[in-house]
Design a protein around this nucleic acid. Structure first.
Length: 247
DNA sequence: GCGACAG
DNA sequence: ATCTTGTCGC
């Protein structure tokens, strides 16, 4: 693969905050960065949508993270660009600190992406997080790019009331009496999606975009395509490693 | 102190 | 996140 161009960080983001030495520092960075999250629509007209995800290999001694970011045209939802990167995990997976583990790899892939999307859907929570700084908010603030959190399971909070069984049913996501997002059953007989603001979008728009990106699957198309791309990247990366070892 | 806990 | 093809159920 090509050398990784330096990803452009938003002004005022200390690079060392991307890889804190310990959890206490990481936690402090989250609290400070969470203050920068913009929970209203402050983005250009959306012509290009983005999707990001990562893939891991079970028991990988190298601890590699295969990141992928895709761009889809709107409307149409066709993939028009893709980029990927491989990075070494700096941290293990710790609930509440996912951003520190995955964002560095995503930034590397992002730097190689062209064109850049106007709005990105991230696999994970936005502000629906103990300190209001889930990975979607993390990536959004660090790049200062509009983002939406689309998680497949809860981290904090619960639906305000039992969620309907039918496709399209939704309930407010509430935690400690606060509205953090929306729980949406995107498909019948499937577990719901946990949607929350990432950065520079309102919750209303976030939910609307996820609904618009429905292509018949549980996951919205951008995130679904990113997941496929991340897996392809992993397989390709593994082949290279296997080939080098066996030939 | 105990249990929960995105990917 | 990942291991894994076919299979049972809606």
């Amino acid at each position: 693969m090509d050398p990784t161009p330096p990803a452009q960080l938003a002004p005022g983001i200390p690079p060392e905050w991307l890889a804190p030495p310990d959890l206490a520092t990481a936690r402090a960075a989250q609290v400070a960065l969470a203050a920068r999250v913009v929970q209203r629509d402050a983005h250009p007209p959306v012509r290009l949508l983005g999707g990001v995800d990562i893939s891991n290999t079970r028991f990988d001694p190298e601890g590699r993270i295969f990141a992928a970011v895709v761009v889809l045209e709107w409307p149409g939802l066709r993939v028009v660009a893709r980029a990927s990167a491989v990075a070494r995990a700096t941290m293990p997976y710790i609930p509440g600190y996912l951003g520190f583990r995955e964002v560095p790899a995503l930034l590397a892939a992002w730097a190689r992406l062209d064109p850049k999307p106007d709005l990105v859907l991230v696999d994970g929570h936005g502000i629906a997080h103990p300190r209001g700084f889930g990975i979607a908010a993390h990536l959004g603030v660090v790049l200062d790019v509009p983002s939406i959190g689309v998680a497949k399971s809860p981290l904090v909070g619960a639906p305000a009331a039992p969620l309907g069984e039918e496709a399209g049913a939704e309930q407010p996501l509430v935690w400690k009496g606060r509205r953090l997002g929306t729980v949406l059953r995107s498909k019948r007989r499937s577990n719901p999606l946990w949607i929350s603001v990432g950065h520079r979008v309102s919750l209303e728009s976030a939910v609307a975009w996820v609904r618009r990106c429905d292509t018949g699957y549980r996951l919205p198309e951008p995130t679904r395509q990113a997941h496929l791309a991340a897996n392809e990247t992993r397989r390709a990366g593994m082949e290279v490693a296997d080939g080098a070892a066996s030939r």
